[in-house]
Design a protein around this nucleic acid. Structure first.
Ligand code: ZN
Length: 380
DNA sequence: AAACTTTGACCGAAA
DNA sequence: CTTTCGGTCAAAGTT
């Protein structure tokens, strides 16, 4: 897909997100159907005074990975006000203005086998802290990611075998996911991968899988040809099928992270991350996704893994040094590619509901939502 | 004691 | 069919 296409993709994403959704689509129950997921992202963009400046998005510029730069967001309500954010202290109605500044963040979207990469200069969104952990946006299969030292990336998907992205190439993380051979579910599965760091090194602190979820390592293999060893992890949440594999070079640098599947639950509470808990700190902030869209979590709680995503993957890498947010990557793999095994009998696997576009949009929205949340949490 | 790693065995898919 | 490869299992070791 060309850049232009990518841009349009994003545009449509935004437009669509901004459109009001019907109440019904937002109902929890509706979540059972994939299309209903759209309600979430929409609500997200919709209910909040979000402003995604169009200009922010697609920018033909080259994709840079981490310019490490200014990530500005107002920490305090007051400040937010200045930014136009609304603050209602008492009611946790704070709105945070997230600004992915200047530097370019890269967004890579892959649809039907094509990959598009665009970078956006800045994106600002308002976020509303929610109480409870209803952070809605996370329920979805998609992923988001937030690596810290490692350029993490996350993706959820299946049906796609991974594709390794060139590593380190131009410092940008490229995301690719595509053709699917025959996805196999069980065995070697279809992971979807995305990004990798062009060279981030682990910083002290975070473990290699500190992306907000809890993982249990269940294997490691030395890949053929002296490549870096690959470790396999599974999400520890009961019933959650998500897995990820991480390749690291000897010096600890993460060279690739590939996610498979989608979480069937919201991100677990983060434990106090360092900073003194400033009032809100440990609490969970959630994007105000409009209403109740907890269908997902409800399902998770009931032990029923909710549907999985089609193919989507997102990666969100942030260079935390100095508290700077440097990159955001999102990769989406839309179903519908011819390569996707249609023959796939196992509908149970990862479904690729043919919603191509809608799915992609949704994915991207969710990913974005997720990614932003991560940033938010990271900086709280 | 629970939860997570480590690590070689095991297995199915592909060559 | 046999070998190779990537992924997973699971016993044993750690924390
Ligand atoms: Zn999970």
């Amino acid at each position: 897909m060309s850049l232009a296409s990518g841009s349009s993709l994003f545009s449509s994403l935004l437009n669509s997100s901004l459109k009001p959704m019907t109440p019904s689509s937002l109902s929890p129950v509706a979540a059972t159907s994939p299309s209903s997921y759209l309600g979430v992202p929409s609500g997200f963009f919709l209910n909040s005074p979000t402003h995604l400046t169009p200009s922010l998005f697609p920018s033909p510029t080259t994709t840079r990975a981490f310019p490490s730069q200014p990530f500005s967001w107002m920490a305090t309500p007051r400040e937010n006000q200045e930014q136009g954010g609304v603050v209602n202290d008492e009611q946790r109605q704070y709105n945070f203005d997230f600004t992915f500044q200047p530097t370019a963040s890269t967004v890579t979207a892959t649809m039907a086998g094509d990959t598009t990469t665009t970078s956006f200069m800045q994106a600002s969104m308002l976020m509303t802290p929610l109480e409870g952990d209803s952070y809605n946006c996370e329920h979805y299969p998609w992923s988001y990611q937030e690596p810290s030292m490692d350029a993490a990336t996350r993706s959820a998907d299946f049906t796609t075998p991974f594709e390794r992205t060139s590593s380190g190439v131009s410092g940008a993380a490229a995301a690719a996911s595509m053709t699917t051979p025959a996805a196999d579910v069980l065995g070697s599965g279809g992971y979807s991968q995305v990004a990798q760091g062009g060279g981030f090194r682990q910083q002290s602190g975070r473990r290699s899988s500190d992306d907000g979820y809890n993982w249990r390592k269940y294997g490691q293999k030395q890949m053929k040809g002296s490549e870096n060893p690959r470790s396999y992890y599974k999400c520890t949440f009961p019933g959650c099928p998500t897995k990820k594999k991480v390749e690291q070079s000897p010096d600890g640098q993460v060279t690739e992270i590939v996610y498979k599947g989608a979480h069937s639950h919201p991100k677990p509470q983060q434990k106090a991350r360092g900073r003194a808990a400033s009032g809100a700190a440990a609490s969970s902030y959630a994007l105000h996704c409009g209403g109740t869209n907890d269908a997902y979590s409800a399902g998770a709680l009931s032990g029923t893994p909710v549907a999985t995503p089609e193919n989507s993957s997102a990666s969100f890498g942030d260079d935390e040094v100095n508290g700077v947010c440097s990159s955001l990557q999102i990769s989406t793999n839309a179903a519908g590619g011819e390569d996707l095994d249609e023959d796939e009998p196992d509908s149970k696997r990862w479904r690729k509901d043919g919603d191509g576009e809608a799915g992609s949009i949704r994915d991207v929205s969710l990913l974005l939502c997720d990614a932003i949340m991560q940033v938010f949490e990271t900086f709280v």
